[in-house]
């Protein structure tokens, strides 16, 4: 739902940094805990780039699994959805990473 707004923000940054050059390729890093759907982001990116310097640009999305630390036993674990259970049975988890949404790089023609 919010992917369109996010895609528009991404395009704003691309346009600002490309300084008039044509953007041909964009790499986004999306954490698996970030509440963003890659398919939806891809669809919205196509819409948001229309009529901009990034129109037609190839979009690559790198999904990054999250990491969390168990508050009960301090063990670290990987999270692919926004909740989970530690080996010790604990579900009270402190998220370390996985909520990022970054424009990693772009290519300009």
């Amino acid at each position: 739902m919010h992917e369109l707004g996010i895609a528009m923000q991404v395009v704003d940054v691309l346009a600002e940094r490309a300084q008039g050059a044509r953007v041909t390729r964009v790499v986004l890093e999306v954490g698996m805990l970030a509440a963003l759907l890659p398919d939806s982001l891809r669809f919205c990116f196509g819409l948001a780039t229309q009529g901009t310097v990034a129109e037609g640009a190839e979009l690559e999305i790198i999904e990054k699994p999250g990491r969390a630390r168990c508050r009960a036993c301090a063990r670290e674990l990987e999270l692919r959805r926004p909740f989970g259970r530690c080996e010790c049975g604990g579900t009270d988890l402190d998220w370390i990473s996985g909520e990022e949404l970054r424009i990693f790089e772009m290519e300009v023609a």
């Binding site: 996010i6 923000q9 991404v10 940054v13 940094r17 490309a18 050059a21 041909t24 390729r25 990022e100 949404l101 970054r102 424009i103 990693f104 790089e105 772009m106 290519e107 300009v108 023609a109």
Partner: peptide
Amino acid sequence: RFVRAKATGRRIRLEHDVLQH
């Protein structure tokens, strides 16, 4: 480091956090 198999244009590293604003 992460690279493209087939680089074409000029690559610009941004590392821009979109939600940071």
